[in-house]
Computed example of a mutant assay.
Amino acid sequence: MDLDFNNIASKLLDAWKQQKPIEPLTDEFKDLSVEDAYKIQLAEVSLLLKEGHKVVGKKIGLTSKPMQQLLGVNEPDYGHLFEDMILLEGEPCERSKLIRPRVEGEFAFILKDRLKGPGVTIADVYRATEGIMPAIEIVDSRIRDWKIKLQDTIADNGSSAKFVLGSRMFPIEQLDLRHIGMIMEKNGEIINTGTGANVLGHPAASVAWLANKLSEFDVSLEPGEIILSGALTAALDANAGDVFTISYHTLGTLTLKFI
């Protein structure tokens, strides 16, 4: 199959900018491989960089067993985070600028040292991390109605859209991330609860996976990067007027309103 990675990346970018979803890539390209999908993502990143956008980190997806089973895969995926995806704490999210957004609660790792695989361990991640911040990720799909397979979401930059960071960073050595609980409320009703152990058994294991995966492309995680380690619970649909409150044990509370 002869794929034009730049052309496919341009279609995804147009869908993002115009909030007009496209049909699944895996319907049009039956033999689309995971490797092809990452090449499309990297082509999309390259186009955004040429437009003046700045990469500030990466996000990891499909870190829970139920989500992996849903898509029939046995490992996570990743996408790139850009500067204009950041929402300040307390800043509302404009629903009209997204297609079908969903909200997730996550931990953000702020790196102080370079991480490059292969062979990166949880201990390496701890040593390389400046601190942890509570975060909310807003995922969105440029694929119509979220009818995605693994290759679709990878090509679509891991379904990245927006994210919120808490206003305080916590020293990682003081935290047992596996046992930090999270309560997720939507419009005042508790919908989901979870713990860090839901993320590949340990959120730092998720970051180690990413560093090792990126080594296949000769890419490393760099100082100052923000790494969203994966959702603690299932994502919730978001519409205009919805208010999400996510409370993290010892890390505080984040609130996000869609307008």
Rank of each mutant, 00 (worst) to 15 (best):
R127W: 02
A128S: 14
T129R: 01
T129E: 01
T129C: 00
T129K: 00
T129W: 00
T129S: 01
E130H: 14
G131S: 08
M133V: 15
A135R: 08
I136D: 07
I138P: 04
I138D: 03
I138G: 02
I138M: 01
D140W: 14
D140E: 12
S141A: 12
S141G: 11
I143L: 04
R144C: 06
W146C: 00
W146V: 01
K147D: 05
K149W: 02
K149L: 06
L150H: 09
L150V: 14
Q151H: 07
D152Q: 11
D152I: 10
D152V: 09
D152W: 05
D152R: 07
I154L: 07
A155C: 02
D156L: 12
D156Y: 10
D156I: 13
D156C: 12
N157V: 07
N157I: 07
G158D: 00
G158M: 00
S159H: 03
S159R: 02
A161E: 12
K162Q: 04
K162L: 10
K162A: 01
F163Y: 15
F163A: 11
V164I: 06
L165N: 11
L165R: 11
G166A: 02
S167Q: 10
F170V: 08
P171S: 11
P171W: 03
I172T: 09
I172F: 06
I172K: 06
E173N: 15
Q174K: 15
Q174V: 01
L175T: 11
L175Q: 11
D176G: 05
D176I: 07
L177C: 09
I180T: 08
I180Q: 09
M182A: 13
M182Q: 09
M182C: 14
M184C: 10
M184W: 07
M184N: 06
E185Q: 14
K186I: 08
N187A: 12
G188F: 02
E189T: 13
E189V: 14
I190E: 15
I191P: 04
I191M: 15
N192S: 11
N192A: 13
N192V: 05
N192K: 15
T195N: 11
T195R: 13
G196E: 12
G196L: 10
A197P: 04
A197K: 14
A197Q: 14
N198G: 01
N198Y: 03
N198E: 12
V199M: 12
V199D: 12
V199A: 13
V199Y: 13
G201Y: 08
G201P: 09
H202T: 03
H202C: 04
H202Y: 09
P203I: 02
A204P: 09
A204V: 10
A204G: 15
A204F: 06
S206P: 06
S206E: 05
